[in-house]
Amino acid sequence: MSLARITHIGGPTTLIEVDGWRLLTDPTFDPPGRRYSFGWGSSSVKLVGPALGVDELPEIDAVLLTHDQHADNLDDLGRALLPRVGAVVTTVTGAARLGGGAVGLAPWAVHTLNRPGRPPLSITATPCRHGPPLSRSITGDVIGFAVEWPGQEHGALWVSGDSVLYDGMRQVGGRFDVGTVLLHLGAVRFGVTGPLRYSMTGRDGVELCSLLRPQTVIPVHYEGWSHFSQGRSGVAGAFAAGGLEARWLELGVTGLVSV
């Protein structure tokens, strides 16, 4: 049986360890209490700090960065970490902003990581839309990541990225057999835009997973910031009503996941 070690550090930030590889998603390591601007009059306060500090991380082979333009996915301490990791894979526009050899992927583009003595990791960018229709010019580009390697038993490990539920997300199930999904939720809202949502609700997660049928669903990025309108209890209620079982990872506790 092939196992991955996944540690939920906080927000969207997870450490994924599998077959000698160490991947870090969306590094956010700033302490809580600060308000961050998200542009166009929107802002959010970080309420909970990371379960691990940057100095407690092992050597990181690659950062999978869904987007660089929002502090709840890349904050100051997370940004300072990037030059010290093996590779950074992100959006095309994000790679141009970050420089330093960051790899930019458009949706469905593929980048392969190779290291001696380890299986190659194939990383495919998957589409996201971080808000309602026509919001991309305001919220910016976002991608998810489908990660595959030889010897997987249950299909790709998918990092959904910050997105509402739309056709681009639904297409993932037609292209990949998804075994494990790190599902970004939280139903993000900002007072300045009223009822508009910028990430999935628990009910959206149920609908998406009914199409993908993953073996393991790990909710992430659903609390710890003031802009989330649906926390763990709301997500759990929606999952229970929809018959979807989740694997909840407590912050800082490493879970073993069959992959």
Rank of each mutant, 00 (worst) to 15 (best):
S122K: 11
G100L: 08
L65S: 06
A96E: 12
L82N: 13
D61S: 11
H111W: 15
G94Y: 02
P120V: 01
V88G: 00
A102P: 03
R97A: 13
H70E: 10
G49E: 11
L47M: 14
V89T: 04
G104A: 10
G78A: 14
L52E: 10
L121K: 01
A62V: 03
G104Y: 07
L65T: 05
L64I: 04
P58V: 06
P83R: 09
S122N: 04
G131I: 01
V92H: 08
Q69C: 11
P119Q: 07
G41P: 04
A95P: 09
V85N: 05
W108N: 03
A109K: 03
G49W: 14
D68L: 03
T112M: 09
A71K: 03
V45G: 04
G78P: 09
A109D: 15
D55T: 05
I60D: 01
L65E: 03
V92N: 00
V45F: 07
V48S: 15
C128A: 11
G100T: 11
A95V: 01
H67E: 10
G49Q: 12
E56K: 01
V85Y: 07
R97E: 12
S44P: 00
N114K: 04
T93L: 12
V85T: 00
R79I: 06
T124H: 12
T124K: 04
L98T: 01
V92M: 01
K46M: 15
E56T: 00
T91I: 05
T112Q: 11
V103L: 14
L82Q: 06
V54F: 05
T93A: 13
L57A: 05
G100D: 12
P83L: 05
A71N: 05
A95S: 04
L113K: 06
V88F: 02
H70I: 02
D55E: 14
G53W: 10
